[in-house]
Design a protein around this nucleic acid. Structure first.
Lengths: 353, 353
DNA sequence: GTGAAAGCGCTAACAA
DNA sequence: TTGTTAGCGCTTTCAC
């Protein structure tokens, strides 16, 4: 424990003046040294660092932000964490951000405009240098608050007319296509889709991509085999039951997200249907847990790390090119199929039913 | 740079002076109004709020923190998020914090002292008003940096001699006891424990509580039935296999955490052992996912929300009683048994083997 | 009740 | 190269 002088009390946070005094230089020199400015002689640089260490000095970021106008804080708004997709995403975002010397400010919007407003308020008050809006929802209007203040924004999933807002386009098509190919190769022809809630932009995109892929595979879309669920396990159970109530059953079910697939797994288990022997199931997202379901879930991976990286990159570019004419940028994050244990050839004889 | 007046360009962030000007009062009055100071006449209060709204003004927290010395930021350090326990915890902590007007600064220590040092540095630089260290690990030394600066700290699991540090005591005993009672009532006598890594303080506590509960239940501890795993699913698989390699098999396995239990579920499934008919499994934590395993996992719940609330409360008390002689406080968070589908009576005839 | 003015700890002009 | 100084946007005495 460093204790100078002979006082017993814990030394209160030293400031730049204390460092300057100890190093016998001006506070400007201390500032320059810390910020790696080239114009400090080696002799003084050494003395300053020495003083900094000796005093255990940490610069006050609030003071720094106040004068420089840069907070080095990035905001991230997600929907909520009931869906295991989000914590992962936040963690990944935090990792990239911290690696680049940024702090992050996390907010959950819970799809509630009032809460979103508060989130935005917090972001503005803390002077964030950019905000990643990864709610996959549709709450644009409030974001104008940010845009009007020239705060960079990146949005997953949809393009806004506002040119100041960058977009991350999620290419579900590739993964869904691969999934259908996989299923087709196994011999499936009767494929259902458990969709997400239509209020979610991403859910609609996923569904459309599924439809396109079905047709691309030369199959025809069966209306009753596309049922809207709510992206929860419970919803998956319900969706599965709806499917079972039909006269003709699909041999494979593709789900709009992993939670839905987990519900299907559960419902099938309860009904004594074996996965994958009697029924193939495919999820989407590849949440950490997909690996540990019984059987392990075949799923379409949407990498949270990739998404987080793209969001960070988008924000950084916007922030650093603040002077450049800000053009609308687009970033692409792709998906891929991860084959695990929930898919297999359909049971014999189902081709005819 | 700041342009007041009637420009059409996106007005750059208005400041307190702009508000004062519009409301025709001094900036002091604006400040007082915002902070709810009683000594502002109703007439001016109204005018000020009106101006604030009209300008869409948000106070700059950095400036505020700088002058007031209070940042309204709380730090939280967790281990990492591979274990699904943590994101939940962070989310709960964020919720309480935001509800009380605090922001949070999250850091993962990854059990790496070097990273922890950086975390602590970030916390100090941002002038956090308290830090919740919920790593369940044993990285005390660095924390002195915080303690020395009189920053309140709350630690889960262990007591430090430092009187400035509050502690949250996790009462696993209650839950583990209930679990063993449950098992005993079902008829189990041969109960194994898949422990966590001994470097984790919490793992050791859990194991000790298990031993105590076993003896409390009138059973004797079988050394080979307590095996150290690593709190991952993979570790659970390995632990299960170690158990199966023994001549005498337990009829029930209690796991130090849910991930381990999930590994056991998986390994049992692979070996064709049915849970719960052939083997009962109990987890600990009650992560969100425990509800969705096949079968749904019976587990000992350690509420992340309770833990987060306790941590927040501890910090707030310390922060607000800054002047009071700071005494070491202890908070208790309890556990309870959640019975789901992974436990049942042992298979007939196993009593004798 | 209200306003003027002194900083909080730092960065960035500008001087030397 | 180094030091001096003027604020960044706010809170908070201290006068009035």
């Amino acid at each position: 424990m460093v204790r100078r002088g002979t006082r017993k009390t814990a030394d209160k946070a030293p400031d730049i003046r204390a460092v300057a005094a100890l190093a016998r230089v001006s506070i400007a020199t201390v500032s320059r040294t810390m910020n790696g400015s080239a114009l400090v002689s080696e002799r003084l640089t050494k003395r300053v660092w020495h003083a900094i260490e000796q005093l255990n000095y940490f610069p006050n970021t609030h003071a720094r932000s106040l004068v420089s106008g840069r907070s080095r804080i990035l905001g991230i708004i997600v929907e909520n964490i009931t869906n295991p997709f989000f914590p992962d995403l936040v963690q990944s975002f935090e990792e990239v951000a911290v690696a680049h010397g940024y702090e992050i400010l996390v907010s959950s919007s819970y799809s509630d405009p009032a809460i979103l407003t508060t989130c935005v308020r917090r972001m503005i008050e803390r002077k964030v240098e950019g905000v990643a809006v990864l709610t996959f929802g549709g709450e644009e209007p409030v974001l104008d608050q940010l845009a009007n203040r020239d705060i960079p924004i990146v949005l997953a999933e949809f393009r806004l007319k506002n040119p100041k807002i960058s977009t991350i386009v999620l290419d579900y098509g590739t993964g869904i296509h691969a999934a259908l190919n996989h299923l087709a190769e196994l011999g499936h022809r009767k494929i259902a889709f458990l969709a997400g809630p239509h209020k979610l932009h991403s859910a609609i995109t996923r569904e459309n991509d599924f439809r396109a892929a079905i047709e691309g595979a030369g199959l025809t879309i069966q209306k009753q085999w596309i049922v809207e669920c709510d992206h929860t396990a419970k919803g998956g159970v319900a969706g599965f039951e709806r499917l079972q109530a039909l006269k003709s059953h699909p041999t494979a079910i593709v789900c709009s997200n992993d939670m839905t697939a987990i519900g299907v797994l559960r419902a099938a288990y309860m009904q004594g249907l074996r996965v994958p022997q009697d029924l193939s199931v495919i999820g989407l997202d590849d949440i950490d847990f997909a690996e540990f379901t019984l059987p392990p879930l075949t799923t379409i991976r949407l990498s949270r790390a990739d998404l987080a990286r793209a969001a960070f990159e988008a924000l950084r570019q916007q922030a650093e090119d603040a002077n450049n004419p800000r053009m609308q940028r687009e970033f692409l994050v792709s998906t891929s199929l991860v084959v695990r244990g929930s898919t297999a050839a359909p049971p014999a004889g189902t081709e005819l039913s």
